[in-house]
Simulated scan of single mutants.
Amino acid sequence: MNPTVRTAVVRDPFLSFFDDVVNDLFVPRTVAARNAAPEALVTKARVDVVDRGRAYEVTADLPGVAKEDIRIKVEGKRLSIEATARNERTLNEGDQVLHTERYATQYARAFALPADLDDSRAEARFENGVLTLVLPKREVIAARTITVQ
């Protein structure tokens, strides 16, 4: 569900109960589906956003992800984060997987912040499965009056 379409007294662009319910519907439930090699599921990355005055600090949990597999895009006020966690395992001849819950997971999150972002001064750090972004706000140039001569 698009958070800008939801109607509420206070709009929360970071939380969608509907997304959680819908994602649960698509988790494989049958024995055959559990034994098959599942495709990567898209999971909503958990984020915290703090307004630090001149910049926003965004912290996102991306467990199992390598920093090379993180893609961040900034367009105006909009921030998009995508990442893939891979579970590559080697099976020996004769091995049979009886049950697996550890497979590739795709994380995605996109939302708009209140102010335009200056992507040229943005900083990103990734440590212990936690992505931290410092996104400076774009400086607003004050309107000036021009005198006609």
Rank of each mutant, 00 (worst) to 15 (best):
D116Q: 13
A66C: 05
D12A: 10
R54E: 11
R6S: 15
A8K: 07
V21T: 01
R54S: 15
R46M: 05
G94Y: 04
P136T: 05
G94W: 02
S120L: 13
L25H: 10
N128W: 03
F18R: 08
E88D: 03
T84F: 04
F18T: 15
V27E: 01
A66V: 08
Q96C: 05
F14S: 02
D48Y: 02
T145Q: 10
V74H: 02
P3A: 05
G76L: 03
F26Q: 05
G64I: 09
L133P: 06
F111W: 03
D24K: 08
P63K: 10
D24N: 10
D69K: 07
V21L: 14
Y107L: 10
D116V: 12
N87Y: 06
T90P: 04
Y107R: 04
R86D: 05
V27I: 10
T105R: 15
V65W: 12
E57M: 01
E101H: 02
V58R: 06
F26C: 02
D69C: 02
R11M: 09
K67T: 12
R121S: 07
P28W: 04
A83W: 07
P114S: 08
G64S: 11
V58G: 07
A112H: 11
L25R: 15
Y107K: 04
R102A: 14
L135V: 08
P3R: 09
V148G: 07
M1G: 13
Q96I: 10
Y107S: 08
L98N: 08
D61G: 09
I70P: 13
R121L: 14
N87F: 06
E139K: 11
P13E: 04
D20Q: 12
A85P: 01
E75F: 06
V58C: 00
Y103E: 11
D118N: 14
V42R: 11
Y107V: 12
T132W: 03
L15P: 02
S80C: 00
M1Y: 13
A85N: 07
E88Y: 03
D51H: 12
V50Y: 00
A32S: 13
H99N: 12
R89C: 03
A85Q: 05
V47P: 02
A115Q: 15
D12T: 11
L91Y: 09
V65M: 07
R78A: 08
R46I: 09
T100P: 01
D51C: 06
L79M: 01
L15S: 15
A112G: 13
T4G: 11
R138F: 03
L133E: 02
K73H: 01
D69H: 08
D118T: 01
L25I: 14
V10D: 09
A83Q: 06
F111Q: 04
D61S: 15
S16D: 09
T147I: 12
V134L: 14
E39R: 15
P136R: 01
R109E: 14
A66S: 04
F111E: 05
V134T: 15
R78N: 08
P38K: 07
A8S: 14
V140I: 15
N23I: 01
L91T: 00
L79K: 00
T147E: 14
R125N: 13
F14T: 04
N87L: 03
V47Q: 00
V50C: 02
Q96V: 12
G53V: 07
V9Q: 10
T30L: 05
L41F: 05
L62R: 01
V97T: 09
G129R: 07
M1R: 08
K67W: 11
I146E: 12
T7F: 11
D20R: 11
L79R: 05
G53C: 06
A124H: 09
I70S: 02
R102D: 15
